[in-house]
Design a protein around this nucleic acid. Sequence first.
DNA 1: TCCATAATTTGTATTTATTACAATGTTGAA
DNA 2: TTCAACATTGTAATAAATACAAATTATGGA
Lengths: 139, 139
Amino acid sequence: MKRENLVYSEEIKEILLKKGIAPSFQRIKIYEYLISHRVHPSAERVYIDLVGFIPTLSRTTVHSTLNLFADKGMARRLFIDGNLVRFDIDSSDHMHFKCTKCGEVYDILKSSPKVTSPEHKVLSGEMYLYGICKKCKEE
Amino acid sequence: MKRENLVYSEEIKEILLKKGIAPSFQRIKIYEYLISHRVHPSAERVYIDLVGFIPTLSRTTVHSTLNLFADKGMARRLFIDGNLVRFDIDSSDHMHFKCTKCGEVYDILKSSPKVTSPEHKVLSGEMYLYGICKKCKEE
DNA sequence: TCCATAATTTGTATTTATTACAATGTTGAA
DNA sequence: TTCAACATTGTAATAAATACAAATTATGGA
């Protein structure tokens, strides 16, 4: 393994430890995948792309790890698709846009509108946008 | 069947015909269910609640009818839950709030914020809010 | 170092939502 | 009335996610 990757892994180890998560090989690799593939992948996408590197990897591990990251506030679950959960390692305040032609999900780097309700206690919000992405427009 | 329901059905027939949808018994009943049960039900919820009245009803019919309504712009698909699609017969511009305690989904009668992007062509948007609902707060 | 225990991963089975599809039933126009 | 088009049904298939127990790995104390 290249030196950069080792350094990378060391940094990720500390991030996980700070969140109280034991930095296992699988968890480090999944975290590393998320920060280097910013396409809001589904669990299946993560599994398919990593099982080549980690032949013993199981889908269950991917699911439980992604859920662990989400529950610890290190990743966001996106429901922009319906019928499948996508994960975004960037938990900062921003919106998401899905191209209805190619299916790609992009970040929209604006903070989500703050909405309140006179009745309910609103704790968080998500804004999903739909349309045609830059690439598909140009074709 | 009571007279009111018959009148009701007549009105729904016309609504469906105007949208180019043949007003079959099942479609009328599903439409009627949606306008009288404003809880953003899933297909399964609609099926369970209607199969008592229509013993021959099948899940496939419910799914295809709800998808038909959505595709014709008569209903909205809500992805507020992840892993299951909810339907809202009110396709006017408003937001949705899900109580993370009881799971209920409420309407928030404000129009969704209009968001644009310098890159992509944004055609529509959905805002989902999460928190504790009025009922659960009071307990 | 060795062992016991806890934590993690794995693989299989199950659950749940949805769609595919063919067979059956219904309807409306010629 | 007849027939073709459309709608409904039921079964099977697909897909995402979870449950769970067995296997593996890591950890800390003697």
